[in-house]
Design a protein around this nucleic acid. Structure first.
Lengths: 174, 174
DNA sequence: GGGTAGAGTTTGGAAATCAAACCCTCGCCT
DNA sequence: AGGCGAGGGTTTGATTTCCAAACTCTACCC
């Protein structure tokens, strides 16, 4: 019997395995703001120092941050985002926009980001091909991983009398 | 005494407090795919059943999922995304795009999303005002929360501009 | 020498995770 | 009517992780 064990292969899961632990994305937030020093990260994020040290090591090992020396004699370091690390900023802006919209009133924002087009940034996820905003009902998933369908592992085929086999295209209750 | 304690007020942190725990975003992934049944979530995500139950409760309480009955007689439920929940799909697509680009070769994708414009989706985060892609160097953060600057809590006055020079604030306060 | 800043590491108790086992309701097969 | 199995969880007990506070070490500044 093949192991029913392994979860669905997925780049979302892989990405979260790297940056999805508690505090990791907040480290990125601070680094984007230019706050790359250890004590600064501790204060601004509120993370335990040992946990933060572990997260930083992981982010550096994962190629998202670098540890740069900014002073030789009293050895002092600063964490900076790599190119790959900077490419996660969009995801953070998206999460911020969501939180601003759903967890606050539109007037109670703790932070405003200014885009150099002159306007306040409201992050929007779009399709790079057509430029339109990504909406759920416009998407169709095509699993590529062998042995996996949209609904689960093909071997188990857990799709008999499902309530809505439609999956992505056509439903919508809201 | 000194309230050096509270972390920076931030919608990113708030959002992550709700959906940032392990597995939560993978639950959303499966729900977007139409897989809202408990056992399906367990199998496809690989989460312990008790942890998954806790996450589902939190997501329902947080207004991101609803628990819908799809069969009366053998009582059967299914979790579905609310409107707010659907609005997180863009963030997931962004994380997927990042993982596809940085954690895999562009040929080894476990899942391809088709956009109904006819092309494969490559999620891009853009500024809703000007439509351009969000890039780090085009952004400027403006903290609104009282007592907080870009670099940290104002009361503690961590120096403001970069690691290069320290402002020498000798006078303590306390 | 005393004090401060930066960058962590150590410590020990509290909380979360995990895999596996268990529970309960139905529906179906025989 | 007995047994099986699916679905949807809850319980259990051992392992990990987290957390806050204390501690370490270097180095500058007075």
């Amino acid at each position: 019997m093949s192991a029913t064990r392994d979860p669905r292969p997925c780049s979302i899961a892989d990405t979260l395995a790297l940056v999805g632990e508690k505090y990791s994305l907040l480290v990125l937030r601070e680094v984007y703001l230019g706050n790359g020093r250890f004590d600064q990260l501790v204060r601004n994020i509120g993370a335990p120092r040992d946990v933060l040290a572990a997260r930083l090591k992981r982010l550096v090992d994962g190629g998202i941050l670098t540890k740069a020396r900014y002073s030789e004699r009293p050895q002092r370091f600063e964490y900076r985002a790599t190119t790959a690390g900077l490419e996660l900023e969009g995801a953070l802006m998206t999460l911020m926009a969501w939180g601003d919209r759903h967890l606050r009133g539109d007037d109670d924002r703790p932070m405003v980001i200014e885009h150099n087009c002159g306007h306040e940034l409201l992050a929007l996820v779009t399709c790079s091909a057509c430029g339109r905003e990504v909406r759920h009902e416009d998407l169709t998933a095509h699993p590529q991983a062998p042995g996996w369908t949209r609904s689960g592992p093909a071997a188990v085929q857990a799709d008999a009398h499902g309530p809505s086999r439609a999956g992505h295209t056509a439903s919508g209750e809201g």
